[in-house]
């Protein structure tokens, strides 16, 4: 059990003029290969900042991120991100959006035809091959997010980072997409780190749930293992006692011990 992704004593302080805000305080976490870990917390607790630090889009003030025992501090395709608002480039087609990353990552290792096949393979994985020539404005929100997932998967990341990937979707589309992500994780065995604020989503999808305390100076309050066998079925779980216990535990953490006072 060696750590695949390791967050080592991460602190993050934002400084604006003389005012400093400590957002994250002493974050330590190790994630194993193939694991699905969710980070949950109230809004403003710095979970998106943490994801940006892992992605390399923001620097940590102290501490660092180790991926396969090597420090990573700049963004790269080995930690592909699925952004909350899909972030597809509107002037490119679905195919071209996925191709953008593929062309960069596999510029030397794959021929043109192989890259093309790889783009289509990934679009097939998320069932979006039929829309390859559509522009993002022509497809629905859920479809955009599927393409965003395909774009990230196509880079063959060591860790897939999901930043509230289903947050902007309606409940039905969200459930559908959660099932898709679960199936992909089952099939491909990716290591996935997901930011969420949805308790059911966290319990349904994760092997472990990392619960963050409220900011400022947010830290990891508790880590909960979800000992549910995979593949998991949404309907069966609704009455599963382990599922309900885990759910209750997270709810208790969020709403009893670390209530978000400002929102109340």
């Amino acid at each position: 059990m060696t750590a695949y992704l390791k967050l080592d004593h991460i602190d993050k302080v934002f400084t604006r003029g003389a005012a400093t805000t400590e957002v994250l305080k002493d974050i330590n976490l190790t994630i194993e290969k193939g694991e699905y870990v969710s980070i949950i917390g109230h809004s403003g607790c710095g979970k998106s900042t943490l994801l940006n630090i892992i992605a390399g889009l923001t620097g940590a003030t102290t501490g660092g991120v180790l991926l396969e025992n090597r420090e990573v501090n700049s963004p790269g395709p080995d930690r592909a991100v699925v952004f909350q608002n899909h972030s597809l480039l509107p002037w490119l087609t679905v195919y071209e959006n996925v191709k953008l990353g593929v062309d960069k990552v596999f510029a030397r290792t794959k021929t043109r035809a192989e890259r093309d096949a790889w783009v289509m393979h990934n679009l097939n994985l998320v069932q979006m091959a039929h829309a390859r020539d559509k522009r993002p404005s022509e497809i629905s929100g859920g479809m955009k997010q599927r393409v965003g997932i395909a774009r990230a998967l196509a880079m063959e990341p060591k860790v897939l980072l999901l930043d509230e990937p289903f947050g902007a979707l309606d409940a039905l589309t969200r459930a559908h997409l959660q099932d898709s992500v679960m199936a992909l994780h089952q099939k491909l065995g990716n290591t996935i780190l997901m930011i969420t604020h949805d308790v059911d989503e966290a319990v349904l999808l994760s092997d472990r749930i990392v619960m963050m305390t409220n900011g400022p100076s947010a830290r990891i309050g508790e880590v909960l293992e979800v000992p549910l066998a995979r593949p998991r079925k949404r309907l069966d779980l609704a009455t599963n006692s382990t599922y309900l216990k885990c759910r209750h535990r997270v709810l208790e953490f969020l709403y009893e011990r670390h209530r978000f006072v400002e929102a109340a």
């Binding site: 992605a55 963004p75 790269g76 592909a80 991100v81 952004f83 972030s87 480039l89 953008l100």
Partner: peptide
């Protein structure tokens, strides 16, 4: 948008 810059950064 910062999103596009982030995409470019991740893709390198």
């Amino acid at each position: 948008p910062q999103d596009y810059r982030n995409v470019a950064a991740v893709v390198q």
